[in-house]
């Protein structure tokens, strides 16, 4: 299978569909690991919870917002690299139904 280059910053905010055509959330963060000289992608994080984690994590920890239960309404999923099909980077698709995704821990 051939390799192609994808610009990661353009994947940001792209809506992902699952194998049954349902919305699974937007790509907000990409988790990778550094192995020697290489940086290997492990998972994509989808949904508002991932966005909040990236932009406003400290604010979400404020006791006032927690007391209002605000953080519980934001949901997010972790997509392992092999679960996401990026053959068309404009239209990312899951290789599985969204129910199989793991919820992001908070």
């Amino acid at each position: 299978m051939s390799t192609r280059n994808i610009n990661v910053e353009l994947l940001l905010d792209k809506e992902v569909k699952d194998s049954e055509g349902r919305n699974a959330g937007r790509i907000e963060e990409i988790r990778a690991r550094r192995e020697g000289e290489e940086i290997v992608v492990e998972a994509y994080h989808l949904g508002p919870a991932a966005l909040l984690e990236r932009l406003a994590a400290p604010v979400m920890r404020l006791s006032l917002l927690r007391a209002l239960g605000f953080h519980r309404h934001a949901h997010g999923w972790r997509v392992r690299w092999e679960q996401l099909d990026l053959s068309d980077p404009e239209k990312p698709v899951l290789r599985c139904p969204r129910d199989e995704l793991v919820k992001l821990a908070r």
Binding site: M1, S2, T3, R4, N5, I6, N7, V8, E9, L10, A32, E38, I39, V40, V41, E42, W81, E82, D85, L86, S87
Partner: peptide, 19 residues
């Protein structure tokens, strides 16, 4: 300004360059 990732369907994608 940008990050390039080498993608293939059967191996973990790799971050290759900064743009």
């Amino acid at each position: 300004d940008g990050i390039v990732m080498a993608y293939s369907a059967d191996a973990p994608p790799r971050i290759t360059c900064f743009e």
